[in-house]
Design a protein around this nucleic acid. Structure first.
Lengths: 224, 224
DNA sequence: ACCTGAACACCGTTCAAGT
DNA sequence: ACCTGAACACCGTTCAAGT
């Protein structure tokens, strides 16, 4: 996080890419994906919209840079002396926590996958998959499952944040509205959905995410 | 799919919601997410942009309707005389094929989850999870893992379609460009990514998707 | 009652003009 | 060399005016 010194009516130093990215992250955090605008951003940086293009190719480049600034440092942390499973859990949780704190990552990452941020995650998860003793022929598939699951959760998290921005109270209200709607469904056609409505409304995103990782890990181990 | 009768210079019947949705799907299929515009759409329907709002609340309502029009019929097909695992595979493949044929679904569904389309999928997958004998306390978690994985793959598919719209040839070129980039990485820091570069470049999305489902199913069975 | 399409309040991006 | 900000080509959405 960058210290704000906003009283300056005019910049005395020239723009830097890092400044732009830091300001973009602040806008995304406070206003969601639609909060980031070249006009908003240039206003916060006390410059014109055109100036930004000197340091950033376009909006998707900016989003990608914001993602790797937020995710990169956490993922690159060394986690020594961990079992492969524990290390995979740790990387996954780092991703989850970053996507939970910054819901815009969930939607931005989908458009930036295959880029540097995801390669770091791929490498770290992959090394542990290797350590787990998975058949090398299945390395790609195994890593894909884990990454697709993580990105899927992030995307859903982003969508939910869109619907119910704000904190705990609204989240509970949102979930119980959905649960009520499920309970109104036709019992003949939607028996399962009705049966898990209350379970869904009290679920813990983080715990369920980890349970999902463990389920996938159990599947991986059963083939090793 | 709706029959086109485009020669009419002027509509002789009043607009219907179904017409609007069918036209929206055509625009999305041919031009991707950015191909759907109220101006494009109203032009194709020989009317003004404002007229659409009589039948559709807004753009996200329209996207949601387009998703369920494309996915709903396939998912609602009864698949009798199948084992629970086979039925889950079948639903998952139906979703995959729909998202592969219409990549825009991947990004649109993320913003429409919890709505009617996903409830149908949830119900169908859930019934099979139940039939599999999973502990009812774990019903929600189990279904979540499967749906998040499916949506994650769809989101990635959408992102890739964005990068490499068009057919087989460009896809191969795109993948080998990524593989080349991975092979250029520092061997000390990215040993795993380098080792799977060629495996990645020849992978089969559909087969890998199914392998992922099977891995998750193996994990589910190991807890039952 | 329903459609029409100009108008409003925005976007991302470019580029001549300034310093 | 770098910034500035008006201008361009778009958006989704609204609403007075038409039929």
């Amino acid at each position: 996080m960058v210290k704000k010194m906003q009283r300056r009516p005019r910049r005395d130093e020239s723009l830097s890419r890092e400044q732009i990215i830091a300001a973009a992250i602040e806008l995304l955090d406070s206003g969601g994906e639609s909060g980031l605008t070249f006009r908003n951003l240039s206003e916060r940086l006390a410059t014109g919209p055109g100036a930004i293009y000197g340091h950033v190719a376009n909006k998707s480049d900016l989003l990608e840079a914001a993602c790797s600034a937020v995710i990169g440092p956490g993922v690159d942390l060394q986690a020594k002396d961990m079992s492969p499973k524990a290390a995979i859990r740790a990387v996954a949780l780092t991703m989850f926590d970053a996507m939970d704190a910054h819901p815009w990552i969930g939607s931005a990452l989908a458009w930036a996958a295959g880029k540097s941020t995801m390669v770091s995650v791929l490498e770290r998860v992959g090394q542990q998959v290797h350590a787990l003793g998975v058949d090398p022929d299945k390395h790609w598939v195994t890593v894909s499952v884990l990454l697709n699951y993580i990105l899927g959760v992030g995307g859903q998290n982003a969508a939910n944040a869109q619907v119910a921005r704000a904190r705990e109270a609204e989240r509970a209200e949102f979930l119980s509205t959905v649960a009520d709607a499920w309970l109104q469904l036709d019992p003949d056609r939607y028996p399962f959905t009705r049966s898990i409505a209350t379970q869904m409304s009290v679920h813990d995103d983080r715990a369920d995410f980890l349970a999902g990782i463990d389920l996938i890990l159990a599947g991986i181990e059963s083939v090793v």
